[in-house]
Design a protein around this nucleic acid. Structure first.
Length: 350
DNA sequence: GATAATACGCGG
DNA sequence: CCGCGTATTATC
């Protein structure tokens, strides 16, 4: 099936992406149902332009999410709403706006989800995939479990390690206070679907964070993108999650010339689209999040579009306004688990 | 039936 | 021309 991996390319450029979503999709399925927990307020994180006000970081710090394992006797509800702009529920008129739009979504309203994670199967997953999954065996990162056999939903191996691609740097300054996020994230990220206290693997999680920073194995290959116009020959897709060595930095693609020097700046982040796409695919599978949900709620795009982007990610350099979408994806990947959840349920009950 | 992939066409 | 939505079709 697919397997087509793009390749990589490197390019940077000032982004002029601007919000142009004037469209209004009306169908807003009430996925709220999907998310068992209505408790979340909103996490206004969807701001178009990169210069985001960074509001939630405060929340984070405020939360001071220290207690990490709520799972067991999680009596500690960390539900706190530092700022209380207003309830979305009481949203006067305008039934629904788009989460993506910079609407009045004030930053700050934050509510930490309680310890739901252990209860139902997956975080998002309304359907209870079988949680029978034996203990948590972190599947071999290779291939991230796709391809052979069933998807390893239950696995919490968490990010297929790998490449910390943008996580390395973009994770920190892009949004300003993101590092806080990371901090909280530190404690834990995802927990096993069911298993009552099996947070065994939680440990690994954080490892990855710094682990790959100084991992002897593979150096942080930053962005490398072989882009291939699409489709193709299957070049070994064997392990994408792992290290894809950028053997050929020189992009053979036409039009691809990366700008010398514009990379790394604080403003325009270069994103390895291929990598992000792959990672999104993996994460969506892990959490059993349908493309449609993710696309509409997080990216503010349609399922078809997302599917296309995922399968045929164009190199950053070739993107124009489409960058915005990738930025969102990238950003989402960087967020701590609970926040990702928040993003997903976002519009449902709004 | 639900979810993903593709086709088609439109608007900026 | 690019990016996207919608409709349709394929796949699970």
């Amino acid at each position: 099936m697919d397997g087509g991996l793009g390749e990589m390319s490197l390019h940077s450029h000032s982004d002029l992406a601007h919000s142009q979503d004037g469209r209004a999709m009306l169908h807003t399925r009430d996925l709220s149902a999907a998310f068992p927990r209505p408790s979340l307020g909103s996490s206004s994180m969807s701001l178009e332009p990169e210069p985001r006000p960074s509001g939630y970081d405060h929340s984070m710090s405020a939360l001071g999410y220290s207690g990490d394992s709520p799972s067991s006797s999680g009596s500690t509800y960390t539900t706190l709403t530092p700022l209380q702009p207003f309830d979305d529920k009481f949203h006067h008129h305008h039934h629904h706006h788009h989460p993506c739009l910079p609407v009045s979504n004030v930053i700050g309203s934050f509510t930490l989800m309680r310890e739901d994670r252990g209860l139902s199967t997956n975080f998002y997953n309304p359907y209870g995939k079988e949680l029978a999954m034996t203990q948590s065996l972190t599947p071999p990162t290779t291939g991230s479990g796709l391809g052979s056999s069933m998807h390893g939903y239950g696995s919490l191996g968490n990010s297929p390690n790998g490449n910390g691609g943008q996580m390395l740097h973009s994770g920190y300054d892009v949004h300003g206070g993101s590092l806080f996020c990371r901090a909280s994230d530190f404690g834990r990220e995802m927990s096993p679907p069911g298993l009552g206290g099996g947070e065994v693997s939680v440990g690994h999680q954080l490892n990855k964070i710094e682990a790959h920073q100084h991992t002897p194995n593979h150096h942080p290959h930053i962005y490398s993108q072989h882009y291939q116009p699409h489709h193709h020959p299957s070049q070994q897709s064997a392990k994408m999650g792992e290290h894809l060595h950028s053997s050929s930095p020189a992009s053979s693609s036409p039009g691809e010339g990366m700008l010398p020097g514009s990379q790394g700046g604080g403003g325009g982040e270069e994103i390895n689209t291929r990598d992000v796409a792959q990672r999104i695919i993996t994460e969506l599978k892990r959490y059993s999040i349908p493309q449609a949900i993710f696309a509409e709620r997080v990216l503010c795009r349609s399922q078809g579009t997302l599917s296309d982007l995922l399968r045929n990610p164009k190199p950053w350099g070739k993107l124009k306004s489409g960058r915005e979408t990738f930025k969102r994806m990238s950003r989402w990947l960087q967020e701590p688990e609970f926040q990702r959840m928040a993003s997903l349920r976002l519009e449902g009950k709004i």
